[in-house]
Amino acid sequence: MSIQESLLYSAEAIEEHYDAGDYIFREDATPQYYYQIVSGEVKLNSYKEDGKEFIQNIFSANACFGESMLILGKPYPVNAIALTKCIILKVARELFLQLLQLHPDLFLDISKSLADNAHDKFVLMPKIASKNAEERLAELMNIMKDSKNQEKFSFEIPHTRQQLASLTGLSLETTIRAIKKMERGEILMIKNGKIFY
């Protein structure tokens, strides 16, 4: 989901540049801005007690992130970290809420997007709880793959094996073994090191 940049600029949007590894916001911080990616990739993550990273989601150009906490006014339960060089538009909370009042259709679009994300999480959670690594990875890949694009091996997975591991709560070694097993079972295809589902 994204909002037209011209509308964001009408709400006094500020353009910010981040390098890979820069924090955009940190866990437990109070939301102050609406964020929308112009270019680059951002991950939302948290860390388990043992220091292991759990990636909640990865966003790229034209996506917004952190908007549910901004609307609720609750502290962030995750970090937002630039995965690559990023250009991000940010709008102060009060100005963003005024923008939603002026354009109620935007609020409806955000609500639909949040509902869609919640649906995907509900579908993914039982699979994540499963001990079967292949099931976890297949469900994640099903969510990533456009439902209209059902042709086998037509979708290139845009994430690294480490990112897939962090998104599913698996270790890197388990993820690599599961991907090889899925390849042998013709569930996915590996071509030039890239995964096609």
Rank of each mutant, 00 (worst) to 15 (best):
Q4S: 13
N149I: 04
S171M: 00
T174S: 10
L170I: 02
A20G: 11
L188G: 00
M141C: 04
A11L: 11
L124T: 06
I3T: 06
T84I: 00
P158T: 01
P75V: 03
S10H: 00
A133S: 14
M144V: 01
A92R: 13
Q36I: 03
R161N: 15
F65Y: 10
L95P: 09
I81M: 08
Q56R: 12
Q162V: 08
S68N: 14
L172M: 01
A138M: 13
S113L: 06
E41R: 12
I24Q: 07
K191M: 10
V42E: 08
E49F: 03
E27S: 07
A115Y: 07
E134L: 04
D28K: 14
F65E: 05
G193K: 06
F65A: 10
I179G: 03
R177D: 02
L95F: 03
L97T: 02
Q36V: 05
K131F: 04
A133N: 12
A133R: 08
P126M: 08
L72A: 11
V38D: 07
Q32L: 09
L102Y: 03
N192S: 15
E27F: 00
A165H: 05
L95E: 15
A115W: 04
E135S: 12
I71P: 13
T168S: 07
I71K: 15
Y47I: 00
N79G: 00
N132C: 05
